[in-house]
């Protein structure tokens, strides 16, 4: 599906919810726990695939390999986030001092 900043997605396999911060122009399917994520209102239920249960962390930003996709985890769950066979990784940001 075409993802745009602000798109919200929910896992069918666990409690994970994310919001898209940055997305490339081509269609992408983000999976969580092995099954595609869908809009929060949509019917979507799946089993957690074995080996795809490393979990998501609330407040962490996840990116794909070339960082063209960035999503923010707004609710944590047990599944692992991926695109196809490539797992998304946590974006490490240098901490900034509080400025306001």
């Amino acid at each position: 599906m075409q993802l745009t900043p602000g798109t919200r997605l929910k896992s069918g396999a666990c409690d994970t919810e994310v919001i898209v911060v940055k997305a490339p122009s081509q269609d992408l399917v983000i999976t969580c726990g092995g099954s595609p994520m869908a809009a929060p209102g949509e019917e979507n239920s799946a089993e957690l695939s074995p080996g795809l249960n490393s979990g998501t962390q609330l407040g962490k930003r996840y990116v794909n390999e070339d960082e063209t996709l960035e999503i923010l985890c707004t609710k944590s769950g047990e599944g692992s986030l991926s695109i196809g066979d490539s797992p998304l990784k946590v974006k490490e940001a240098k901490p900034l001092p509080a400025s306001d």
Binding site: P5, G6, V21, L58, G59, K60, R61, L72, A93, P95, L96, A98, S99
Partner: peptide, 24 residues
């Protein structure tokens, strides 16, 4: 807009990075 403020906050602040004793 929501996108301006949302990206400002999530881009410059680490979620729940403050200790329980912190107060501003």
């Amino acid at each position: 807009r929501h996108r301006n403020l949302f990206s400002y906050v999530t881009g410059s602040v680490e979620f729940m990075s403050a200790g329980p004793q912190e107060a501003i």
